[in-house]
Computed example of a mutant assay.
Amino acid sequence: MIRNSLYINPGLSTAKPGNHRQSWTIAHDEFVEKNNGIMTHAEIGKALGRSAAAVQRRVHALGLQQRTYSEWSKDEEKILNDIYPSRGLEGVIHALSAAGFSRTKSAITGKVQTLKLERLALFESISSLTQPEFFQFLSRLYFESTGDKLTYQVLAEMCHVSYSSMQKWFAPGSGQQPLSIQLKHHFWLACKFAIASRKRKISREHRQDDESDQVKA
């Protein structure tokens, strides 16, 4: 599987790997330049219908630095998954650097595409809410979707945190503890997941009722 489909143009080549007679086009060279060091030579070759050795020779012919593809560690992927949706590319670069990792923008962009991560525009618009306002937003979202009230206890169970922590984060007052953007993002996703699960359960129950009615008929 090619890791960085962001840069892959299905129309680049229909040739089979190893077809060295095909001329290198400007589009091919641009593809090699963009993905050199992000994808392996074999992956680039698969996209262009060439062998890994042919790609390696082309990298040399173009005067590009022979970069070694480096697998992402689990810690790097966790940072990417946690940070990118809410803070974007610059946030990931900063977080990786703070953790002692070094990745180029193009490498991060390619990995984002591989993992199919997306920026959460709605979350960006609500992340600036105060903590009590944020809880009210989640409560409205949950009630409008399920008809049930979202309490601190319900949200605590969704997010696998203690009830007392919920009180410290969301109860107005001088004792309120700060809530990081990462935790806000976690709570928002947990709420959306719970709503989706509830909808699937209701849909399944309705389908079972319909099947039962058909059997009785």
Results as ranks from 00 to 15, higher is better:
Lys192Asn: 05
Gln167Phe: 04
Ala99Cys: 08
Glu43Pro: 05
Pro172Ser: 04
Ala156Phe: 03
Gln131His: 04
Pro132Ser: 04
Thr109Arg: 15
Asn81Val: 05
Ser70Gln: 15
Leu48Met: 10
Asp82Lys: 11
Met1Trp: 03
Lys74Ile: 11
Ala95Val: 03
Ala54Pro: 03
Ile195Ala: 05
Arg207Ile: 00
Pro132Lys: 06
Ser165His: 05
Phe135Ser: 03
Glu71Asp: 07
Phe187Met: 13
Met39Ala: 14
Asp148Arg: 08
Phe170Trp: 02
Asn36Gly: 14
Ser128Lys: 11
Ser165Tyr: 09
Val59His: 11
Glu30Ala: 14
Pro10Leu: 07
Asp75His: 06
Val59Lys: 11
Phe123Gln: 11
Leu129Trp: 15
Thr104Met: 08
Thr14Met: 13
Glu90Asn: 14
Pro10Met: 13
Thr104Trp: 11
His20Tyr: 13
Arg3Lys: 04
Ser127Met: 15
Thr130Glu: 12
Ile126His: 10
Glu90Tyr: 02
His206Gln: 12
Glu76Met: 09
Ser164Asn: 14
Asn19His: 15
Val154Ala: 15
Met166Asp: 00
Ser125Cys: 03
Arg204Asn: 05
Val59Leu: 12
Leu115Trp: 12
Gln176Lys: 11
Ala107Ser: 15
Gln208Trp: 01
Gly37Pro: 10
Ile38Gly: 12
Arg204Cys: 08
Glu144Arg: 01
Thr114Gln: 15
Glu124Pro: 03
Gly49Glu: 00
Glu77Leu: 12
Ile181His: 06
Leu96Ala: 07
Ile83Asn: 03
Lys192Gly: 07
Ala171Arg: 11
Asn36Pro: 13
Ser162Arg: 10
Arg204Thr: 05
Ile202Tyr: 04
Lys34Asn: 13
Asp213Asn: 12
Tyr152Thr: 06
Ala217Gln: 02
Thr14Asn: 15
Gly37Val: 01
Met158Arg: 02
Gly173Asn: 01
Trp72Asn: 13
Asp210His: 02
Trp72Gln: 12
Asn19Ser: 14
Tyr7Ile: 00
Asp82Ile: 09
Glu118Lys: 07
Ala27Gly: 08
Glu157His: 09
Glu124Cys: 10
Tyr7Val: 01
His185Gly: 04
Thr104Ile: 08
Phe134Glu: 09
Ser128Met: 02
Arg198Phe: 14
Leu48Glu: 05
Gly11Cys: 13
Phe187Ala: 07
Ala98Leu: 12
Lys184Asp: 01
Ser165Asp: 05
Gly147Ile: 01
Glu77Phe: 03
Lys116Glu: 14
Arg140Ala: 04
Leu48Tyr: 06
Phe135His: 01
Asp210Cys: 10
Ser162Glu: 14
Leu6Ala: 08
Gln167Ser: 12
Asp213Arg: 13
Leu141Lys: 15
Lys34Met: 14
Gln176Cys: 08
Tyr142Val: 10
Asp148Gln: 07
Leu179Ile: 02
Ile44Pro: 01
Lys16Pro: 03
Ser97Pro: 00
Gly18Tyr: 08
Ala190Cys: 02
Glu71Arg: 06
Phe187Ile: 02
Phe187Val: 03
Phe187Thr: 00
Val92Pro: 12
Ala121Asp: 01
Phe31Glu: 04
Leu89Val: 07
Trp188Asp: 03
Gly100Asn: 10
Leu141Tyr: 06
Glu144Leu: 02
Ala156Leu: 09
Gly110Phe: 05
Ala98Tyr: 11
Arg67Ile: 08
Ser13Ile: 12
Tyr152Arg: 08
Gly100Arg: 05
Met39Val: 09
His41Met: 13
His160Val: 02
Arg67His: 07
Leu115Lys: 09
Asp82Ala: 13
Val154Ser: 14
Leu115Ala: 12
Arg21Asn: 14
Ser5Asn: 06
